[in-house]
Simulated assay, not measured.
Amino acid sequence: MTSIATPTVNSTWMWRGHQINYQSAGGTGAAVLLIHGFGASVGHWRKNLPVLAANCRCYAIELIGFGGSDKPTPGAEIEYTFETWAEQVVDFCREVIVTPTILGGNSIGCIVALQAAVTEPKLFIGVAMLNCSLRLLHDRKRAEMPFYRRWGAPILQSILTIPAIGKFFFQQLAQRKVVRNILLQAYHHPEAVTEELIDILMAPAADPGAADVFLKFTAYSWGPLPEDLLPQLACPAIAIWGAADPWEPIDLGRELMDVATVDRFVELPDVGHCPQDEAPELVNPLLQEWISQFEVV
């Protein structure tokens, strides 16, 4: 497979009265849409989109509430749920991509991809998951924990709903040294945590509404689980997992992905939570090979 980078184009698309930011590259081949994780943006695919576009029409979208996309008031204007984001993805594929699409996601982007593919199965022909969020703080999963571990997250979530406390917490979190330390946890190789990456993740935090979206999502403990969605998939899927992920344990991931709809589970040793950014030299060839099986419509 070629690894020649194709230039990317920045664009906007209006969805339900809100501006959505996305990037695209490539003019021929299968259509691929990449979906970022929590707090990320299209920049998290900067090492993948132009390379994949050498063989396909590749897009990366910013979910409403994240990146350069609008951040409308939670509740009053929009509900920040996986169902909402899936509807955004479905409408984007209908209106912008038009042809049946392969979805790729990282972390919570995988849940969005799965929900979209289950909601409108005729629109999607494949799903690639990179360190899929296991949603370990979901209400249903907390119910199975010992009582002394069960209440910590709900108490913190309740405290953060107090506006003054929540905003202060977000301000402390949205600092360069804090973002760097979080990334150093998520990435196995510290040299992958560059100033460019920190800039990409910090820029949207200054947007109006960013704190409200962040706090709303931290309180989101319901909705679909990957184990609910995976058996419903009507298209093939691949799972790629950085084995050094401290947040989504690979043993749980391997067990979760042991379903008929997942064709292949690929372990990446010594790679963390965001393999597409930390180890693109491993991820890009895997995705290119997997995408090559799909016929162009």
Rank of each mutant, 00 (worst) to 15 (best):
P275Q: 03
L130M: 14
V296L: 11
I155D: 00
P204R: 02
P231R: 03
A239G: 08
G223H: 00
T84K: 03
V98M: 08
E83W: 04
R57F: 13
I97E: 02
R140C: 08
C93Y: 06
T73P: 08
A116L: 06
L215N: 07
T101D: 12
S133I: 01
G37T: 10
A237T: 08
V297D: 09
P285F: 13
A205T: 14
H138E: 09
L230I: 15
F66A: 08
V98T: 13
T119P: 07
K47Q: 12
R264G: 11
N55Y: 00
A192C: 12
W151Y: 15
H18G: 10
E87P: 01
A53E: 07
R150D: 15
G67S: 08
E278W: 04
Q115T: 15
A206F: 13
N181R: 10
T28Y: 13
R150I: 13
I200K: 05
E227D: 15
E195A: 05
A60S: 13
A86Y: 00
R94Y: 12
M1Y: 12
L252W: 04
G37L: 00
P231G: 12
F169M: 11
A143V: 07
L201Q: 07
G37A: 03
A86T: 02
Y148G: 09
I182P: 04
V42Q: 09
K167V: 13
R150L: 14
I35K: 00
R94Q: 13
Y220E: 15
D277H: 06
E195S: 11
A206I: 04
P275F: 01
E267W: 04
K47V: 04
M257R: 00
D139L: 02
T81M: 07
A237H: 11
R264T: 14
Q185T: 05
R149P: 15
N131F: 02
P72D: 12
R254C: 11
D258M: 08
K177Y: 15
G39C: 08
H188Y: 09
D70A: 07
F169T: 15
P190A: 10
F217K: 04
Y80S: 05
D263Q: 15
V266T: 04
L201K: 00
G39P: 14
T81K: 02
V112R: 01
S3T: 13
R135N: 07
M14V: 13
M129C: 13
C235A: 07
Q115D: 14
D263L: 11
S292H: 08
E255R: 01
I165K: 03
E87Y: 06
Q115W: 06
P280T: 04
V112W: 11
L134G: 04
Q276E: 10
R150Q: 15
I35H: 08
C274K: 00
E267L: 04
W151D: 13
P50T: 01
E87R: 05
V32R: 03
Q276V: 08
T28F: 14
Q23K: 12
L201H: 03
K71G: 05
D258K: 03
V42I: 10
H138I: 01
L229D: 14
S107G: 06
A40D: 05
P74V: 10
V178Q: 08
R135Y: 11
A76W: 02
T73Y: 04
C58S: 13
G209K: 02
A5Y: 12
L229F: 15
M202K: 01
H273P: 05
G43T: 05
V296P: 10
P72I: 01
D139T: 05
G126W: 02
S221W: 00
